[in-house]
Design a protein around this nucleic acid. Structure first.
Lengths: 329, 329
DNA sequence: CTGAAAGCGCTTACAG
DNA sequence: CTGAAAGCGCTTACAG
């Protein structure tokens, strides 16, 4: 069923039908009612593809994410999708993986699909290939980059100041009486680098000693917790650990508990993400809430603003917040 | 840049350019090379919207999910999206929430967007409103319903036989010497009803006694584990618990551990989902793998088959598998 | 093997 | 307030 068929049944022109559908003011009330009746009677459903072609607006947004199964990304993707939909935009979500080739390909796909803009999620996209591909195939439409940043003129960068958050975590540990703070991580991402930066600044400002431990995922998942335990044997003065994310913190708690090290008395622990993991551990986990949901919402809203020709800052920062639970004394 | 402009530069007609782009056989090699050179030179990117309009195929699939943040759905959505993309289809993902109104709306949106088919994820969509809306606005394109079922003629239902899996879990507990098995849940979903059905069948086949406990999310999350502990005091013979999902199992372990009840000696525990939670608990969690990823893959593949006019069964069942870890003696 | 033309289903500037 | 016509950027049956 097309507007031409509706027009025929309603005995008007397609132009008029179109005007009724789009709520243009210039339609006589009687005509409008007549057309609307036919529209309803035939349960008319507009072909958005055709509309897109003629208006040159797809009302679709591309969302690029490495792997939506990563809970960080899931939250952000959820927030962006729902907020965009409320504003009349559908989301094409692509899991672009972590290879440059797939990233390039994904951007090209979104470009061909004529999305009106894009949201890129995750610092893993902060690289030369993405930068160049965007310049080549996506330089005429706005892009929001969440948790990363790129210099392209059409890219607007929104980041959570995780470095500040980790710095605050160091200060909080001091307030709770901890003096030898280990920063433990297992991913070599831009986000992790930022966290380490904040850790170092905090430690340095307090005149404390830096303890850094990077552990592989395999090492810790295979119950081979020797790496951490050995490190603690070599550095028995350590009395607090900041884990780069809650899952790692959870595994750390498991490891310490199995080795009869008391949390929070012997060692205090802070995780990052404030995820569901925080309340399933014993003791429950104090964690840095890095505001991923807010980031997603703000990202969607910023993109909407850009699409409506409102101005948006090229770089926006939001700040995490520490949620205290039982893992600190 | 359109194919007409390319045609002009290459001194051929737009038809020929189109044929080159679509790799039609009937183009002279020389002509093809000449056109391809211009295409490359100008970094031509085809407008898929225009193509969709003229071919009457959008090469887009709608994915309907209540809330992608639910890890079940995340896995399925990931698998469907990646598999569809490999086959040239983009995915519009809509978080439709759990109200009938939003579900209806979401289906209408996908219909207007001219998606070639849809994948519906989760038994929550198994209701009259969805059934009717599909009949009204989406009866001419194939739909794959994952983890639920609807009678519409264009809907193909794929389910995991969770009832069978839970029944097997009951048998496994018997093999491990457990005799009084509690089934514990906290969600009133169609999936949970199915699990309880399997539990009851297994228990009945063994001549065991049925123990069912439904706990609210709030009750357990607020550290108020009294409900479970009280239940165990009233039924001290209970020596095994099947939890309706891993998260609940994790919280159960936390609760029992805090009350000095030994797992797996005093009480054995089985979770459902075989998720990341399984290896962060002490002891690690034996769990029913309900094959959500396989379900997603199979769903995508089935949809592709339907779109290629291959036949697909109206109802497909796959079976879960128990992954044993340390929570059974 | 190639091109001119019609068509996909809308929107919108223009004329009345 | 309304309609005829052109245009959005492709594909494809038809003719040569």
């Amino acid at each position: 069923m097309t507007i031409y068929e509706i027009a025929e049944k309603a005995d008007v022109s397609a132009s008029t039908v179109s005007r009724v559908i789009n709520n243009k003011s210039s339609v006589n009330k009687k005509t409008r009612n007549k057309v609307q009746k036919v529209l309803d009677e035939y349960n008319f459903s507009l072909n958005e593809t055709a509309r897109s072609l003629s208006t040159n607006q797809s009302k679709m947004i591309g969302i690029l994410v490495a792997d939506i199964r990563n809970s960080h990304y899931t939250d952000i993707a959820y927030e962006t999708e729902t907020n965009l939909l409320e504003n009349g935009y559908c989301s094409i979500i692509i899991n672009a993986g972590n290879t440059a080739e797939r990233m390039r390909e994904s951007i090209e796909i979104l470009s061909k699909r004529q999305v009106d803009g894009a949201i890129i999620i995750g610092s893993i996209f902060q690289n030369k290939v993405v930068e160049k591909t965007l310049k080549k195939n996506f330089n005429d439409r706005p892009i929001i980059f969440l948790n990363g940043s790129l210099p392209n003129k059409n890219v607007y960068n929104l980041v959570v100041a995780e470095d500040e958050g980790v710095k605050e975590s160091v200060y909080l540990l001091k307030e709770h009486g901890y003096k030898h703070i280990l920063f433990m991580s297992w991913m070599e991402t831009a986000s992790n680098t930022l966290k380490i930066k904040g850790y170092k600044e905090g430690i340095s400002n307090l005149g404390y000693t830096t303890y850094l431990l990077n552990i592989t995922e395999k090492e810790i998942k295979t119950h081979n917790s020797d790496v951490l335990i050995n490190y603690l044997k070599l550095n028995p003065q350590i009395d607090a650990i900041i884990s780069s994310d809650d899952l790692l913190a959870t595994l750390t708690i498991k490891c310490l508990t199995e080795n009869n090290i008391n949390i929070p008395n012997e060692i205090g622990i802070i995780g990052i993400n404030n995820s569901e993991y925080c309340y399933i551990t014993t003791p429950s986990l104090t964690s840095l809430d890095n505001k991923q949901s807010e980031l997603g919402q703000l990202g969607a809203q910023s993109l909407i603003n850009l699409l409506n020709n409102k101005s948006v800052s090229k770089k926006i920062q939001i700040f995490p917040e520490i949620i205290e639970r039982e893992s600190l004394r």
